[in-house]
Amino acid sequence: MSILKNVGYWLGLPILLILIWYFATLGDVSTFVPRPLPLWEKFASVWLGENILTDVVPSLGRLVLGLATSIVLGIVLGVLIGSIRAARWLSEPLLEFLRAIPSTIMIPVLLLIIGMNDQMRITVIVLGCLWPVLLNTITGVRSIDEVLSNSAKVYGIRGWKRVWHLVLPGASPSIMAGVRQSLAVGLILMVVSEMFASANGIGTLITNFQNRVAVPEMWSGVLLLGIVGVLLSAILALIQKGVLKWYDGLKAASHGN
């Protein structure tokens, strides 16, 4: 019975809203408001057809590549800077400034330097997604428990072993939070860079539809981006669950006390 109740809660409002939407758009409406049925039709025809290969895959591919690069670079640099006090002092003001720049404003400049190609779009994503991971890694490295760190020192755990067994796992909750932020930024950069300058991609297609005032197609693009956002967040949440299983257990245990 309670499963039914839960399903009711999950689907109730959405179904209600969709019904209201359907009936509200039965008559004449402004061209900018989509109707549910045409929207669904367009969604299927635009995105579930060949455009998957020509646009969706390249877009997501660039995003994933950019994110992966940012994560690796961010963690490596973050561990270095977080572990060496002098490095932190050297880089802190610079990093604080670079991360404050709203990364989309760099798109035109990068277009100039690199040109309108995949390297440019991936670089844009990396330049935006690096900072959350980097700064969160630094914070995570610095926040490692002192007693744990002393235990590691006393038992002779040094160098690479220390990084692998102590620093990386200890900083991982903070790093994951940074990765989540990077995902949000990456999505923004992927879309905006494609809207501004790209030959293919989800953002480009949506802009084309906008230029042709193909309203249902445009909205279908928005819908797709929503689905992409939800899916990527869900995947990240799953990864987090696996990586931070010990952390969740630890917090649950200490809350119980």
């Binding site: 428990d145 002192e146 007693v147 744990l148 002393n150 235990s151 006393v154 038992y155 002779g156 755990i157 072993k161 067994h165 102590l166 796992p169 991982s172 010990w246 952390y247 257990g249 630890l250």
Partner: peptide
């Protein structure tokens, strides 16, 4: 070897008990 007062903070929470005891030997 040292045994600290704050036992909870001196053990690696991401490792099992076995892995914790094993780590100094592995190193």
């Amino acid at each position: 070897a040292v045994v600290f007062q704050e036992y909870a903070r001196s053990l690696f929470p991401w490792m099992t008990v076995e892995a914790n005891v094993e780590l100094p030997l592995k190193t």
